[in-house]
């Protein structure tokens, strides 16, 4: 597959994941606004067929994105040649995150696994298996975040995610061919704000519980 083809897969899967994260964040925020509403959402999505199709689709997106990330990174490492520069400077205007997309991605995927064990395994999987849930959705969240360690881990994760997306989002538009000298800075700005809002919504939750538990 051509280099641009591979990048197109990265941008489409990445873009779809950003859309998913947007909805995920909008739903999650209810857990601190109104636990009842959050439970209603959990109930509604639960293990319905469409939620399951969605879950399988998401897993496929992540797997594709991850596989192509490995291919891109390995090929790019080889393309760099066997000798490295003795002195290298990061030219100004080059985002730090753009140089560390794979490492940031690894942090993200590591936490995705942890996150699935924390929540998905206890919630949706148990529903699929037909088991009774131990607690409601909101209680699961409160339970996990009663450990400050988890709050902090999740917060670190979200920062890594933001760095990944902050480059990833405008990069995806660029890969798909949105070219225009005027729009590059605008797209960067929109991407920063959009992904900032998404990540901040997620970030509020562990932060909220961390503070609540510290005060209590």
């Amino acid at each position: 597959m051509s280099s641009i083809g591979k990048k197109t897969i990265q941008s489409i899967t990445g873009g779809a994941l950003i859309l998913f994260l947007t909805f995920h964040a909008l739903m999650n925020i209810f857990v601190i606004i109104s636990p009842e509403a959050y439970d209603a959402i959990c109930e509604f999505l639960g293990a319905n067929w469409y939620a399951l199709v969605g879950t399988v689709g998401l897993a496929a997106l992540v797997v594709l994105h991850f596989i192509f990330a490995i291919v891109l990174t390995v090929q790019n490492y080889i393309a760099r040649g066997s000798e490295r520069y003795a002195v290298s400077a990061r030219p100004k205007g080059v985002e730090w995150s753009s140089r560390n997309m794979f490492v940031l991605g690894l942090v993200v995927i590591g936490f995705v696994v942890l996150h699935l064990l924390n929540f998905w395994y206890k919630m949706q999987l148990q529903e699929i298996l037909g088991n009774e849930l131990e607690m409601s959705g909101a209680e699961f969240v409160q339970d996990l975040f009663s450990h400050p360690v988890y709050c902090i881990l999740y917060m670190i994760w979200l920062v890594a995610l933001w760095f990944h997306l902050q480059h990833g989002m405008w990069s995806a538009f660029h890969t798909l061919g949105w070219n225009n000298n005027k729009w590059i800075p605008r797209l960067k700005c929109i991407s920063n704000i959009y992904t900032g809002i998404v990540c901040a919504l997620f970030f509020c939750i562990p932060l909220y519980y961390l503070i609540i538990n510290l005060i209590a």
Partner: peptide, 9 residues
């Protein structure tokens, strides 16, 4: 040659 990841260097 490698795959561009839009770093801008």
């Amino acid at each position: 040659f490698g795959n561009c990841t839009n770093t801008g260097a």
